[in-house]
């Protein structure tokens, strides 16, 4: 059993959306998807049919994305201070480390998360983060990569990696609270 060229091409829009979430860069995402689709077309006889075509293509794309991320990471300055500085979170806590403001339950029913809109808001929020922090967060949460693999691919320590993920989550929490949950709660 092999995947047909039509089946492979039909997944392009989904793959492009997946790639854009990793790279925050339309041109780089299109290049990675194009490379993945070419590799898939050349190797389509190897598609065993044990997983869906989408799952198979996603696994090919992940390798292309990791290559691109590694290359981008080398181009970003090696100074990690912007990514690991947590001082901008100090305002969330008082001198004893307690929350300054009550943390409220978002309380949006799961099915209320309108996927397409949520994705757009997530993308906007991710763009406000330092580039490398957004990269690490996407590798962890969108690509489901393990911490050890992220550290190895980006040559950063596990400690720096966990600080960056914490920073990303705190930043996204604030951004989503303003742009998504308050608006959805009000509607």
């Amino acid at each position: 059993m092999s995947a047909s060229p039509e089946q492979i091409e039909a997944e392009r829009p989904w793959l492009l959306r997946y790639a854009r979430a990793q790279l925050q860069d339309q041109a780089a995402a299109e290049d990675a998807v194009q490379d993945a689709l070419l590799a898939a077309l050349e190797g389509r006889e190897r598609f065993a049919g044990q997983a869906s075509v989408r799952t198979w293509l996603t696994s090919i794309l992940r390798f292309k994305l990791v290559d691109t991320i590694r290359r981008q990471h080398r181009e970003v300055a090696t100074d990690l201070s912007e990514d690991t500085d947590l001082s901008d979170l100090d305002g969330l806590f008082d001198g004893q480390g307690a929350w300054q403001q009550a943390v409220r339950a978002w309380g949006v029913p799961e099915e209320g998360l309108l996927a397409k809109q949520f994705w757009q808001v997530y993308q906007q929020c991710a763009q406000a983060m330092p580039k490398r922090t957004a990269m690490v967060f996407a590798m962890r949460e969108v690509m489901d990569m393990e911490i050890a693999d992220i550290c190895q691919n980006l040559s950063i320590t596990a400690t720096n990696c966990s600080v960056m993920l914490y920073r990303a989550r705190m930043s996204l929490r604030e951004c989503l609270e303003t742009r998504w949950f308050q608006q959805k709660g009000a509607s």
Binding site: V103, A105, W106, E110, L113, K116, Y122, V142, L172, L176
Partner: peptide, 19 residues
């Protein structure tokens, strides 16, 4: 509440990704 928010953040991203 913070822990619930973090869980919702993860599940929201994964659901949106897989749609």
């Amino acid at each position: 509440h913070f822990r619930q928010q973090m869980q919702q953040l993860r599940s929201g991203i994964r659901r949106a990704r897989d749609e």
